[in-house]
Design a binder for these strands. Structure first.
Lengths: 142, 142
DNA sequence: ATATAATTGCAACATTGTTGCAAATTTTTT
DNA sequence: AAAAAATTTGCAACAATGTTGCAATTATAT
C-alpha cells in the first residue's frame, strides 16, 4: 500500500515503521482505538512511549482525532473528512457500546448547531451517545 | 446545613465526614470538579482512595454525574434534575473552556434527539462543546 | 555516501486508578 | 445509653497510564 506513505508525506512526517503500522491499524479499524489496543495489536513491536508520541503527532497533523469517553479511556479514530493541522472539526456523532465497549464513528449523523449563552464561543463540539450497538443487540436476541 | 445530611440519607448513605465535605464542594461549585480538584479543596483531609470511592458511590446513587472530557480528565457535577439510582439522564450540554479548563453545565441547553441507525439503541447522550467561556473572553478584551 | 535532522527506545519518574484488609466510625438493635 | 452489626475509612501495595531527558538509531536532505 502506497496510500499509507502518501498520507504521512502529505502531513510532512517521516515515514517510519511505527507510523506505518499504526496508521494501517486505523485504516483497517471498524471502531475507535485506545492506546492499549494499539499496543496489543502491534504486539510489543514498539515502545509504549513511541505509541504515545505517534498518536500525539497524528492528532496534531489532523490524521486522527481523539474521542472523549465516559469510561475515561481516550480513543482515537481516523479523520475521514476535512481535518487539517491543529484545528480539527469533528462534525459527526460517536457511539459507545456499553456491552462490547467499542466506539463507532457515526459519520452520517451530523451534530446540530447549538446557540450558546452570550460570551461563550464554541470551537469544537463532541457528541457521544452510549448504549448497545447493532452486533451486540443481534447476539442478545439469539 | 441540614440539606447535606438529607441528600445523603435520601440516597440511603451513611452520613460521614468525607461525604459531607465532598457533597458540600459540589453544592458550592460553579464548574465541574475533577478528582484532583477535590483532593486539593479538601486539603489532604481524606485518603485518595476514599475520594475515589465517594465519587463512585455518588455516581451510583445519582447524586453526581461524570462528564467525559477531551483532555482525558473525568469530571463530576451535581445532577440538578431527575437522576435516580443507576440510570442517569443527562439532558444538558457541557461546556469546556480551553483557556481556564473549567467545565460548565449548560442546564438551559437541551441535547436534541438523534435518529440512530437500525439496531443501535441509545441509553445516554453526552454533548460537549469546547471553546472559550465568558469570563475568559472578558479578560481577553481588556 | 555523508551530513543533518528527526525519531526511537530506554530508564526513570509522575499521576491516576484499583484491591484487600484491619481499624475506626456510623447505624441499628437491645 | 451501651453493645452488636454493618458500613466506611485509611493504609499498603500494586497496576495502569502518561511524561521527560538523553543517547542510539533511522530517515531525509545534501
Amino acid at each position: 500500500m502506497e496510500e499509507i506513505d502518501d498520507i504521512l508525506k502529505r502531513s510532512q512526517l517521516s515515514v517510519t515503521e511505527s507510523r506505518k503500522q499504526i496508521l494501517t491499524l486505523f485504516l483497517d479499524a471498524t471502531s475507535a482505538l485506545a492506546h492499549n489496543d494499539i499496543e496489543k495489536l502491534t504486539g510489543n513491536d514498539f515502545d509504549r512511549v513511541t505509541i504515545y508520541r505517534t498518536l500525539q503527532t497524528f492528532v496534531e497533523k489532523g490524521i486522527i482525532h481523539s474521542i472523549p469517553a465516559i469510561d475515561n479511556s481516550v480513543r482515537y479514530a481516523l479523520c475521514r473528512h476535512e481535518c487539517s493541522d491543529g484545528q480539527h472539526q469533528d462534525k459527526h456523532v460517536h457511539f459507545f457500546c456499553d456491552s462490547c465497549t467499542n466506539m463507532f464513528c457515526m459519520d452520517e449523523l451530523t451534530i446540530p448547531e447549538m446557540q450558546l449563552q452570550k460570551g461563550f464561543v464554541a470551537k469544537q463540539t463532541n457528541m457521544l451517545i452510549s448504549g448497545i450497538c447493532r452486533s451486540c443487540n443481534i447476539s442478545r436476541k439469539r
